[in-house]
C-alpha cells in the first residue's frame, strides 16, 4: 500500500463517518421533542432533574440504563412502583429497605424536593424509548395479564379486586392508576401468604405505607385476593 492510499483511507473513513454522525445528530434533535413529550417537560420536571443531580442518585441507580448498576433502573420507576411507593422510598429509605440486603441513604429531602423528584420520574416514565427496559415493559405486563385475566375474570379474587376498587390506586393490565405498585410487579416480588397478611395490616409489614387496611374483609376473602394477585406472576416469562 502506498502512503497516498493510506492517507486516502484516513480522510474518506473519517469524513464519511463524521458527515453521517453530524447529519443524524441534526435530525435527532428534530425528533426529541415528540419522543420525550417535551410539552410535559415543565419547570417542575427541570427542578426535579436538579434534585436528582444534587443528590448524586445516578451513581447508584441507572436511568435510561446509564449510571451506577447498584440499584434498580429508574426509567419506569414511577409506573412500576406508583407515586406513593416512590415517595415512601425517598422520604424514609431506612424504613422502606429495613429488611433489604441493600440500603439506600437517607438524604433528608424536603417535601418540595420529593414533589419535584416525583414530577421528574413521572415525566421520564412516559418517554418513548423503544420500550426499554424489558422488565418494565408495559406491553409485556399487559400481555401476560390479558392471558390470565381472560380465564380468571370470574374468579372470586378478581371479583373482590373489582369490588374493593383496588385499581383506584394500582395498575393492572390496561386499567388502573399509578399511586401504588403495579399489581403484576407485586406478584413478582411477593407470594400469596405475604399479600394476605399485608392486606390485613400494611403498616406491620411496610411501615409508612399509604395502603389502607382491608380488615373489613374476611380472612378467606383476603386470601382470595392474594391468590389472584400472586397468580399474575405466572405467564410472565415469555
Amino acid at each position: 500500500m502506498s502512503e497516498r492510499a493510506a492517507k486516502l483511507i484516513f480522510w474518506v473513513g473519517t469524513l464519511s463517518s463524521l458527515a453521517l454522525f453530524l447529519g443524524l445528530t441534526w435530525d435527532t434533535h428534530r425528533s426529541f421533542a415528540a419522543l420525550t413529550h417535551a410539552d410535559k417537560l415543565d419547570a417542575n420536571v427541570v427542578a426535579g432533574k436538579h434534585v436528582f443531580e444534587n443528590h448524586n442518585c445516578n451513581d447508584c441507580h441507572t436511568i435510561l440504563g446509564f449510571g451506577g448498576y447498584y440499584a434498580p433502573d429508574l426509567t419506569r420507576a414511577y409506573k412500576r412502583l406508583g407515586e406513593d411507593a416512590v415517595r415512601l422510598r425517598l422520604a424514609s429509605p431506612e424504613k422502606a429497605f429495613a429488611s433489604s440486603y441493600r440500603k439506600m441513604p437517607q438524604q433528608h429531602l424536603t417535601p418540595v424536593e420529593i414533589d419535584r423528584l416525583v414530577d421528574f420520574l413521572r415525566w421520564v416514565g412516559g418517554i418513548d424509548n423503544h420500550d426499554w427496559p424489558p422488565q418494565d415493559s408495559d406491553t409485556r405486563w399487559k400481555a401476560s395479564t390479558r392471558r390470565l385475566v381472560g380465564g380468571a375474570a370470574m374468579s372470586p379474587g378478581a371479583a373482590l379486586v373489582s369490588q374493593e376498587a383496588c385499581l383506584a390506586c394500582h395498575a393492572l393490565g390496561n386499567a388502573g392508576e399509578h399511586r401504588g405498585p403495579r399489581l403484576e410487579y407485586v406478584a413478582t416480588r411477593r407470594d400469596a401468604d405475604w399479600i394476605a397478611r399485608y392486606l390485613a395490616d400494611p403498616q406491620a409489614l411496610t411501615p409508612g405505607s399509604t395502603m389502607p387496611k382491608f380488615d373489613h374483609l374476611s380472612e378467606g376473602q383476603r386470601q382470595a385476593i392474594a391468590e389472584f394477585v400472586a397468580s399474575l406472576a405466572e405467564g410472565r416469562t415469555p
Binding site: A6, I9, F10, W11, V12, G13, T14, S16, S17, L18, L20, F21, L24, D27, T28, S31, F32, L35, T36, L64, G65, I127, D128, N129, H130, W132, P133
Partner: peptide, 22 residues
C-alpha cells in the same frame, strides 16, 4: 486512524438505542 474514526464516530449510535432517539 481511518478505521478507528470511521467505526468510532458513527459507532456512538450504539449508546442511542434506548434514550428516546429515533
Amino acid at each position: 486512524l481511518g478505521l478507528f474514526l470511521f467505526t468510532g464516530l458513527a459507532g456512538t449510535g450504539h449508546h442511542y438505542y434506548w434514550i428516546a432517539a429515533p
